[in-house]
């Protein structure tokens, strides 16, 4: 591959994630509309929303950190995205994968929430501060089963490289990690639903409860940045789970197919359940998924 093509490949990386992520969010709104027995918005609705927000003529700022908060968020998400290989064919869209990137990715995934917290702190809106507090409290709950699942995975394949894990899963459905270490997959799935903001765990945003949570004071281009980063982050998580548990993807079509199946499970959970309280969510996360994950860890140690 020539250097020029490599540059195009790298530049296209976040945009592909953005487009597919926003499309998924639009499809989600449409499907939820159909569940309510109405037409629902068009599939491109979220892209139109983001474009409109970028073209708002005013956007009030409350200081330097308020300005930097959404930018840190996008930066963190995009940086994290580059370390997750989208395709496993070794030529296109492979990112900057290296040995041990799985550990780095788990660190970088928190950077977005951190940037948001810094920005909201300077905004000074009580709803925003409440939303951030709830979000960080929820994170304590979500990360325990997720980390346990990753430790099980690393112990099973004896590597901390995402590319290696994908390679070792090659050769048919029965080699996928979700069938090799099923309990770890189930434990991590709860964290995944929580991180995607599915309904029982959507406590930071919490519509009708704390206005719109951390995004309360942000408008115009700041909100557009936050929405873009949410779209990219959604696709990032889908790709990470496909890479870790579902054998990766050789081309873009397979990637879209696998991520869409995962995304539909999120939609099912969202449409059925109502919201937990903060302590209920943390309590749930520390109880059932953590116990399942610990059992998986014990099985892995004994084996």
């Amino acid at each position: 591959m020539s250097t020029g093509m490599r540059i195009v490949d790298i530049i296209a990386y976040p945009f592909i994630a953005f487009l597919i992520g926003m499309l998924y969010m639009g499809i989600a709104r449409n499907i939820i509309g159909r569940i309510h027995r109405r037409w629902g918005p068009p599939v491109l609705q979220n892209l139109i929303d983001v474009f409109k927000l970028y073209r708002k003529r005013e956007a009030g700022s409350h200081g330097v950190m308020f300005h930097l908060g959404p930018i840190i968020m996008v930066t963190g998400v995009v940086t994290c995205l580059y370390f997750i290989p989208m395709l496993s064919d070794g030529r296109w869209l492979k990112g900057f994968s290296f040995d041990g990137d799985l550990i780095l990715v788990t660190y970088l995934m928190v950077l977005g929430a951190l940037g948001m917290a810094l920005g909201v702190g300077q905004g000074g809106v009580p709803f925003g501060v409440m939303g951030v507090t709830r979000g960080l409290t929820r994170l304590i709950g979500l990360e325990i089963p997720y980390f346990i699942a990753i430790i099980v995975l690393m112990a099973h394949y004896n590597t901390a490289s995402i590319n290696k894990i994908i390679e070792l899963q090659a050769g048919g459905l029965s080699n996928w990690a979700m069938f090799k270490v099923p309990l770890a997959f189930i434990a991590s799935l709860f964290s995944f639903w929580g991180m995607m903001g599915a309904s029982p765990f959507d406590i930071p945003g919490a519509p009708q409860e704390v206005a719109s949570g951390p995004a309360t004071e942000f408008g115009g281009k700041y909100l557009a940045l936050m929405m873009s980063s949410r779209g990219i982050f959604g696709f990032l998580k889908l790709t990470l789970w496909v890479d870790l548990f579902m054998g990766g993807a050789a081309n873009l079509l397979i990637l879209v197919g696998k991520t869409f199946v995962l995304f539909v499970t999120v939609l099912f959970v969202t449409s059925v359940y109502s919201r937990f309280k903060v302590e209920q969510a943390v309590d749930f996360m520390w109880r059932y998924p953590t116990i399942i994950g610990l059992i998986a860890l014990v099985i892995e140690m004994v084996r």
């Binding site: 309510h36 109405r38 918005p41 068009p42 929303d49 009030g60 309360t216």
Partner: peptide
């Protein structure tokens, strides 16, 4: 906004705060 008249098909959506609203 709900299923009988469904204003969301025109792209309408509730905004939580005046900062986000059009």
């Amino acid at each position: 906004m709900t299923s009988r008249y469904d204003a969301e098909r025109f792209g309408l959506r509730g905004a939580a705060t005046p900062r986000q609203a059009d």
